[in-house]
Write a protein that binds this DNA or RNA. Structure first.
Lengths: 238, 238
DNA sequence: ACAAAAGCTGACTAATTGGTCAAGTTATTT
DNA sequence: AAATAACTTGACCAATTAGTCAGCTTTTGT
């Protein structure tokens, strides 16, 4: 718990292949190797935490997932919870920026379309991140209280003002902006979080990009029409 | 693991108050007490599993939550996983019936309205059940594979036919019925699963019935309009 | 070139946890 | 009123797990 050292890495090539690379010296500048290793640990941990949750994931699993000895993870992060918190933090920074499309100058239609598209892209490309986040909120968000109540709330408040501006300017129908966000998050993230259910219902081994396309089109349709922006909807996006 | 006994219970009154009721004899027919106890364990377990997940919940927690000694739970359910599976099963039976509102004779508008309302009622009254289910699917649905791939899939296929019938009869716009279900589940269950996030964003200690009402109205609006059923929407349901 | 700092790791440990069991109590059967 | 079956429980155990540490190697500073 008294960790305040620098960092180190293991070149992706050296590592991934042989797990027991026996003390192979690898000439590389320190900081580079360090940041690489840390990134590698975080990436592996994201997947493990997504699949098993904080309590379900063991340090042994986490170590195996990135091909490093257990003690190494403790060297960099101290405790399992600290590593988890770090993973969570990485996700949050990735998260908050998605709403940038929603700003006063944009048209509601373009802004919502861009936002939905961005969120769906996240679900497709970073499903583990979404699952870790979902798992955390599901279990009471004890490691996220401050983020949710401060940063996220601020961001949502800010975007709610933008949407309310559009409404008063008559650019879209009146809807509760905050609940609109809740539903947007739910609809887009469900394609990452509940993929197992969808795949089972659709009788496919896993979701493909076609499934994401159909989902995105339907979300877009519900949201745009729901906000009174659906006039020129072209054809059936079935 | 070789459990094939009968069952027993502890009267709710006796129990809840004193945790250490010391060997108080309670005259009651056996089966009654048994089924009561089992129900009590399942109810408590639902909450504990919702809050901690399968891996995170300990037998000690589960025992404390229903005020019974640990060995007692093992007597009735054998293993933690068996108890978990039982909890899951209880939820599923509760789950499948909600879609009954969707049948060929009904109007799309009435059917979808009833379905959304029923699902929102579930989220309000049985949030723990929803969370246990969400947690399970999130972690790959290993304990639900057969349910998802057989019972649920059958049910969805069946309802998809109904919806496609409505579409070909021109009663509603063409949408992919399965993805419509995915979004309906996502939107309604998010009010149970992600309540912590919502409460934080709304700056309230917990969601109230007003929040559920706003959410339900918005879901209804998006879905009905999205399906081309929103013509006579009365006023702003903001 | 050498000392100090940083990084790495196998082996160990204390604590927790799921599960067992034998000895008891209560209810049912005959 | 036994005898048996069903239920209850504290005490116990083997296995797992997060975290530690001493000693090693590699890099960096001078």
């Amino acid at each position: 718990m008294k960790n305040s050292q620098k960092k180190q890495n293991v070149s992706g090539a050296d590592l991934g292949v042989l797990l027991n690379t026996p003390a192979v010296p690898m000439r590389q500048p320190r900081t580079t190797r360090t940041t690489q290793t840390i990134g590698q640990i975080l990436a592996a941990a994201e997947r493990v935490f997504a699949e098993a949750g904080l309590a379900g994931a063991t340090m042994a699993q986490l170590a195996a997932a990135c091909g490093l000895p257990k003690a190494n993870l403790h060297y960099y992060f101290g405790t399992k919870e600290a590593l988890y918190t770090e993973v969570l933090q990485t996700i949050l920074t990735l998260w908050l920026d998605a709403a940038d499309a929603i700003h006063p100058a944009a048209s509601p239609r373009a802004a919502l379309t861009a936002y939905i598209s961005a969120k769906m892209a996240h679900s497709r490309t970073r499903p583990y991140a979404s699952k870790v986040f979902a798992n955390e909120v599901l279990h009471g968000a004890v490691h996220l209280r401050s983020y949710l109540g401060l940063e996220l709330r601020r961001k949502v408040d800010e975007k709610a003002v933008v949407i309310e501006g559009w409404i008063t300017r008559g650019l879209m129908d009146p809807v509760d902006p905050r609940h609109l966000f809740f539903l947007l998050w739910a609809m887009t993230q469900t394609y990452a979080d509940f993929d197992a259910q969808m795949a089972a219902v659709l009788a496919v081994p896993s979701l493909g990009s076609a499934d994401f396309a159909v989902g995105e089109a339907l979300i877009l349709r519900l949201v745009l029409r729901g906000c009174g922006l659906g006039h020129d909807l072209k054809g059936t996006d079935r």
